[in-house]
Design a binder for these strands. Sequence first.
RNA 1: CCCGAAAUGGCGCAAUGGUUAGCGCAGCUGUCUUAUAUGCAGAAGGUUGUAGGUUCAAAUCCUACUUUCGGGACCA
Length: 1116
Amino acid sequence: MYPLYKSLNLSKIDESIREFWEEHNIFEKSIEQRPVENSFVFYEGPPSANGKPGIHHVMARTVKDMFCRYQSMKGKRVERKGGWDTHGLPIELAVEKELGITKEDIGKKVSVDEYNKACRETVMRYKDMWDDLTRKMAYWVDLEKPYITFENTYIESVWYLLKRLYDKDLLYKGYTIQPYSPKAGTGLSSHELNMPGAYKDVTDTTVVAQFKAIPDTLPDFLVGEEHLHFLAWTTTPWTLPSNTALTVGPKIDYVLVQTYNQYTFQPVQLILAKALVGKQFSGKYEAVEDAADLANYEAGAKKIPYFIKKECKGADLVGIRYEQLLPFALPAENPENAFRVIAGDFVTTEDGTGIVHTAPTFGADDAMVAKKANPPVPPLLVKDQQDNLVPLVDLQGKFRPEMGEFGGQYVKNEYYMNDDAPDKSIDVQLAIKLKTENKAFKVEKYVHNYPHCWRTDKPVLYYPLDSWFVRSTAMKDRMVELNKTINWKPKHTGEGRFGKWLENLQDWNLSRSRYWGIPLPIWRNEDGTKEICIGSLEQLQTEIDKANAALGKTQEVPKDLHRPYIDDIVLVTEDGEPMHRELDLIDVWFDSGSMPYAQWHYPFENQEKFKTNYPADFIAEGVDQTRGWFFTLHAIGVMAFDSVAFKNVVSNGLVQDKHGQKMSKSKGNAVEPFETLATYGLDATRWYMISNAQPWDNLKFDADGIGEVSRKFFGTLYQTYNGIFAQYANIVDFNYKEDYVPLAERKSIDRWIISKLNSLIKDVNADYADYEPTNAARRVQNFVDRDLSNWYIRLNRKRFWSQSYGKDEITAFQTLYDCLVTVAKLMAPISPCFADWLFRNLNDASQKEGAESVHLADFPEADESAIDTALEERMNYAQRISSLILSLRKKENLRVRQPLAKILLPVLDPSFIEQVDGVKDLILSEVNVKEIEYLTDASGVIKKRIKPNFKTLGRRLGKDMKAAAQAIGGFNQDDIANLEKTGSYTLVVGDNSHELTLEDFDISAEDIPGLLVANDGPLTVALDITLDDQLLAEGTARELVNRIQNIRKSKDFNVTDRITIYLEQNDAVVPAVEHFKDYICNETLATSLSLTDAVADGEKIELPNEVSIGIQVEKA
RNA sequence: CCCGAAAUGGCGCAAUGGUUAGCGCAGCUGUCUUAUAUGCAGAAGGUUGUAGGUUCAAAUCCUACUUUCGGGACCA
């Protein structure tokens, strides 16, 4: 017996199926039943369990799950090792907030042990919730043996990878400009900079400085100009002593302006961007037309005249040298290359002067453009007492002694404690100095947005810091090359976003100065001349032994490889000199990018396992991981193993709210995943997500859409199974025990749906294989709704509830069973529970297949021999012709229950008759008409329409196409007839004549004058609507059947109950009863039908033409 | 500022450069049903974001712009 249900409850179904899986270890079986050699490798990008999962995780994990399930059903062994990302700043912050401490308190208020322990616990804070989601959304992933990035085995593998890079000379230590908080003494990540409130409006003293050009170095067109200065603007005057270059935009227009300095009244000539003259020379400045007018100026006058003397491009200025603005110190290295004009593309004329003050020690752009220049411009670094190169500002944020009277002062007043700050900040003091030295063109207050340290609330300095880098640029070309072998979904992410990113690759800053993360396994001696990179615990042990011997210590490999334990380990150089660990941790992205190796503790264990599981066939994550996980996987794969780490990657888009807005807790539009899953069930939720938008498009998540999916798709499918198949199959005891009825012996409608089904199988396979799940889902949906339910079932209902059970019925049940069980398999990857429910409902009763779950079954393969495109086309005619007839009936208010005499079909092509004849009976019964008559051309009543065939003609006719279309449009019926007779036509357009054949035209029937006609594209049908008594009587009989059936239903009779009918004598029904008594009785399972004068206690039924009669229906 | 994606009836989505731009949802009108959480038919709803260009022909290709989303601006 097939189970029957009272109603469809999707969440109940998914719950019961999930229980079934767990009880019978279906997941495990789905892996183990497939051979090891035939693997499909999937990598799980580790989520961080210290945040709660959201609805977007349901989306992302559906994508992962779907393709894994598909491949699994295709016979692949798909292991899915889960993992947890456990390091990183968010975890540290959460812990510190919870413990109420700051970084400084670590080791003081809180022991490092406690801190570490707290991190370990916090990191798994929401693990239960994640596990719950995993289960409730039916995401199959192995959470029994996940990889966890904080475990020693994982760290050891990461160390191995780092050492591999180190040995290839791909790790180095260098300077980079980073946001730095002097008060906190630490660099800040952008993550920290992006914390709410970090950017604040501040008022700073800004200076437009005058840099005096050195006459010897001027290009020809400026030779001889005196008092020549470049104007450059800065909002951070304290960086001016570190200026070593001025940057101009090579394509920007610059002018030479002759005027007077407003502070010293001295004559000056100034160079700045043409576009900014108006902005800089505002207020008391006044343009003059003639250079002579400048001479009239007197010092201190209200208005200062200025005159634009010359114009040039930025490129013309490159190479000019200038006097150092504030000569406190010279760059320690290559000072001869400093203080000159260089070119940079980032220069704009938005504000300032179009000339950028360039201090490579304090600006990232500055450092880059300085390095690019030829020869490179040196940063202003000086040597400290240990001969280290340091900037003019120290790590506390104070000027170094080289700065003379400014030495020892904080560069920003905010850094002073309490009230120690001087009245005039460094910026103001410098501005005053510049003013008096004729080096300041303008000094102003300026309000702008500037980042602050979230912890100290003090402004951030951009400051050069020591960092360890991965020399990814060295392997750039190879990364680009190998990326081209990766199948990206969508393509543009791989070519565009990722490809461009690779082409503009920078070295990867690996350093993080934190506690909770993987320590950089590099030890260095005091002066940094000797170092060692540790690649395994064994090596660490060896080195510790050496060190213990040399230093007389008793160190051991720490049980926990995290800080600070690892920091206590002192190693020695070959000379016995102590080496200490570089205190940095590594970027957590390196952790996750290491997972292909570290999840197996490769190469220390599982070497074989690794070999068969690398690289991945498939990974999927959000598009935001492009430069995150996707990159680190790829970079490490290429750099360490010269291999891609994944072959196919789906980068899914965002899940937004229904208005296209980003979901966030603060907006209150975040969708709660558990609620959604509980309300709609996981199957409808997943189906909705996949069918509604392609995974890489942003999904506008609207719960109403899930409702629609569950009504339309799941409701239909449920009803097809429950209301049609199971109910009647149980009655006739269909268990698929009979021999399979060969296709050739089936009705054309059966062969049609089977053909459709196999086409579907073929297409869906291609879609899944090509990572196009949305197409797959939409195809299945259309099949179920349009083909199966609304055509096949509708036309074959009677075969299912006919009480007899012969070959025809068996065929129908077999056909429907096959459709249903196949649909279950096709949809299984997307909606795994409902699919299994359907599969098991069918299969448990029929025992047709051995699989105990759809997920252990094989994915269907198309039987090409069952695909009959001619038949599919035929049926398409049937559907369209029926639809046209129904619309004609509608127009004329002719009920379908009223039979009509005939359909007239104009025929222009003999094969058309053959095609339609094949489905004639279907059409006739569907639209309730007695016969089809073909109107051939010869009848002469068909009015035709002609159109040019643009596809064949367009290419040949080119420019004449328009005229041709017009000419052809003007054809009358005779022209068309003529063309059809001769089969050719000579078209003359202007001077050209073209020989056209029938192929170049579309001729279709348009009208049959005098008849009721409707068109759909080339199809035309006409309807004969004359009614005779016989037809009217039959129409009435059908009405009666309908009313009687309604009564049966309202009286809750069983489907099989027999009845007796008494009908009130009435002229309207007499002919019907006379001629169609048997028909009425058959349809309504009546044993008798009698006409009586009056019906004692029956009911009234309404018939057309406002006839109302009494009727009595009783169980026989 | 740079890069990528998108823009098609009220909403969600389709449409190998080829002539009536489709489908679903919602709303409207009517209707069928002993499978319906349906279905069917009809009406309405569009200058395919704007402006140019290429072409015989553009929703589709090109350019610019506008808007939205995302990423980046050295944290990846």
